[in-house]
């Protein structure tokens, strides 16, 4: 069985977000880039499966749509335990563009399970996995919180309102994963880090694709106001503030 994981290169989740060019572009100067957390957990699960099933998992590949600057993130995935990587050499402008590039790079190759994170920590689009599956003409299952392989069959859990749905999936398919797929991301071992540079990283040229959306402007949320304390004596003042300032009542 061959597993592919789609990974995004996103700002570290503790980054202080700033914008440039009249708030039309993300200021990337002080950003530390990481593997999108869901994608990292998806990769962790694939590695766990390989560790428990051995040769039944023939290969673990990661794919990223990004410029050369995203290679440290890809190398981290290789250090964690992916066997090889593909980078589509294009700026990941928006969801459709990325889904199209992924589908074009994947369709000539042979994978049984394609894992994608539910959404990316930067734009939270939550649409690449589904769009890519459609472009590949493959079935997809979303919101997967567990994935197991037993006797060559794939069993998955989906989180649904008020409970869990258990399914068996036919391969090939796109698995869109979320919390629960793995407990914690795998920390790369020292030998893994040293071997990462020797693993194949194939760079492929992007396909011609349109962008269906365009960023107009970014807006940051208002900074949090100071905490104010009201006592029983000034409850009328509290009601006044909630009504006039916070406009909550």
């Amino acid at each position: 069985m061959k597993i592919l994981i789609c990974i995004s290169d996103v700002p570290d989740t503790t980054t202080k977000i700033k914008f440039t060019n009249d708030n039309k572009e993300l200021d990337q100067t002080e950003i530390q880039w990481i593997i999108n957390p869901w994608d990292e957990l998806a990769l962790t699960r694939a590695i766990e499966l390989k560790e428990s099933l051995g040769e039944k998992i023939e290969s673990i590949t990661v794919i990223n749509v990004g410029p050369a600057g995203s290679e440290p993130t890809i190398r981290k995935a290789l250090a964690m335990g992916a066997d090889n990587a593909i980078r589509v050499d294009a700026d990941p402008k928006e969801s459709y563009f990325v889904a199209y590039q992924l589908a074009e790079a994947i369709k000539s190759r042979d994978f049984d399970i394609i894992l994608a994170g539910l959404d990316s920590a930067d734009y939270n689009g939550a649409s690449v996995g589904g769009m890519m599956a459609e472009l590949l003409d493959m079935p997809s299952v979303s919101a997967i919180s567990a994935l197991n392989i037993e006797n060559g069959k794939v069993f998955i859990n989906r989180e649904i309102e008020g409970g869990t749905q258990k399914l068996e999936a036919q391969t090939p398919f796109v698995a869109i994963v979320q919390k629960g797929i793995a407990i914690e991301p795998k920390i790369p071992a020292m030998r893994g880090i040293m071997m990462a540079r020797t693993k194949p990283l194939e760079v492929v040229a992007p396909a011609n694709a349109d962008c269906l959306t365009e960023n107009i402007v970014y807006e940051l949320p208002q900074p949090k106001g100071a905490c104010r304390k009201f006592t029983e004596e000034n409850v009328n003042e509290l009601v006044d503030v909630l009504h006039k300032e916070a406009k909550l009542i």
Binding site: P72, R75, I187, M190, I193, M194
Partner: peptide, 18 residues
Amino acid sequence: TEEQKMIRQAAKDFAERE
């Protein structure tokens, strides 16, 4: 180097998590 940064991050993750 890329490896040195990765090692530092791995150590940091290990220390904070474990």
